[in-house]
Design a binder for these strands. Structure first.
Lengths: 114, 114
DNA sequence: TCCATAGTTCAGAAATTCGGAACTGTTGAT
DNA sequence: ATCAACAGTTCCGAATTTCTGAACTATGGA
């Protein structure tokens, strides 16, 4: 398994962020991570529970989120520990993530619109 | 030519907005319209000047922007008059468009980053 | 009517996405 | 050490989407 790539903060491109979050499934994943109190583990099959997403697709979603700069992933034993890079990101693109999550009605603590 | 489709405000989907604006070429078009003082005409070949974009591609970019709800297009004689729906949109998704344009560094009056 | 211009539609090629199956890496049990 | 179970990644073929040149449509003017 090749090592996971994470872009440096200054290399994060707005188009990659928007593209990553233009897929409701990825937004759901991201919102879940953003809502998790501690840097949330996301065990692929278990945590995205209700929806049935093939694991290769799920793995790919995480890859897109990771390589766009939205999340940080780190192996923790057998599992993967994922956390958002929202603090960093908000520094680089002020208000962006919040506005997007609000638009989706999925800001942690808000009712889900879709 | 079939009549141009514009989604009603309440039918506008965040994923469509993000997708439309995940392409730098479309962002450039949109930013140009947003910057135009009066509801700007956008004559495809002339106004996007420096870049050479095939006109079928350009037409398609406008279609994506239109059907996502970002712009309004209306035939005015031979040309097409396009304008942003930013006021409406900001009502529906507060702060979203501004945050996106800021992220791209293309808010009217800001220097272009990329 | 005929021509020029602005933009759309069509269709095939190229690129991207999706997802099942095989694979990798880690842990725990024997 | 070997094996089995499990989380997640990679591979690769099928399906979908994007791109763009060429043909077409609509409008205005000579």
């Amino acid at each position: 398994m090749r090592p996971l790539f994470h872009p440096a903060l200054e290399d994060i491109k707005p188009e990659a962020i928007l593209y990553a979050l233009s897929d409701p499934e990825r937004v759901a994943i991201y919102a879940k991570l953003a809502g998790a109190s501690s840097g949330g583990t996301c065990s692929a099959l278990a945590d995205l529970g209700d929806r049935v997403i093939p694991k290769s697709s799920l793995s790919n979603h995480f890859k897109v989120l990771r390589e766009s700069g939205l999340i940080m992933s780190e192996r923790q034993g057998v599992e993967m520990r994922n956390q958002t890079r929202c603090t960093e990101l908000d520094e680089r693109f002020p208000g962006l993530i919040k506005a997007i999550l609000t638009a989706y009605g999925q800001l942690p603590g808000q009712p889900k619109t879709d």
